[in-house]
């Protein structure tokens, strides 16, 4: 198993931490993993993206040009990364930030209304966990229990009371992700 993922959106949306939680979850299953962020001025309101690779075997390049899956959260990232999904690969996007829908026919495309679902949950911070849930529904590369275990590891003890909310968000994402029309 090897999955090469790019998650791309605005700085501040939780793109990097979503990637980190995914990476940690994979580590809980003793998989090999790399997490490579775009860093610097992007983090202050511009576009931000992170490349996460999860594999059963050792990982060579942490920097890639094409991806198995792209999770896309704004139009700039759609313009940049739609063409970078491997033929037969997967593209998941939140229609909220997208003005021009993806047009490729050779990949599987899914939508997930994570922004509105987070608003419904009255928890804007749940956004990235909803996305992660949606992604794991489509690509079951790590078990939900491993994500929860990963959260236990990454969150400081004083925030462990937030784990049930995160679990709800993951389940919400699994529920609302759907194939694009």
């Amino acid at each position: 198993m090897k999955e090469e993922i790019i998650i791309a959106g605005f700085g501040g949306q939780g793109v990097l931490s979503m990637g980190k939680i995914l990476a940690y979850s994979a580590l809980m299953e003793n998989k090999e993993v790399t997490w490579m962020p775009s860093y610097g001025p992007e983090q202050r309101g511009g576009t931000a993206n992170v490349t996460v690779i999860v594999s059963d075997n050792s990982i060579s390049s942490p920097i890639l040009n094409v991806f198995d899956t792209a999770i896309i959260l704004n139009q700039q990232s759609m313009d940049k990364f739609e063409s970078k999904v491997k033929p037969g690969g997967t593209l998941i996007y939140d229609p909220h930030g997208i003005s021009h829908k993806p047009t490729r026919k050779d990949i599987s495309i899914y939508t997930i209304e994570a922004v509105s679902a987070a608003a419904e949950m009255q928890n804007a911070k749940a956004f990235n966990m909803i996305l992660l849930g949606g992604y794991l529904k489509i690509k079951n590369i790590v078990a939900l229990e491993s994500v929860l275990k990963g959260l236990h590891k990454t969150l400081p003890a004083r925030h462990h009371n937030l784990i049930p909310v995160n679990e709800q968000a993951l389940l919400k994402g699994m529920e609302i992700v759907q194939a694009a029309e």
Binding site: K20, E32, T34, W35, I59, P62
Partner: peptide, 10 residues
């Protein structure tokens, strides 16, 4: 360099 410094790995 920036790749090895900023990248996360086990």
């Amino acid at each position: 360099d920036g790749v090895i410094g900023q990248m996360m790995e086990p």
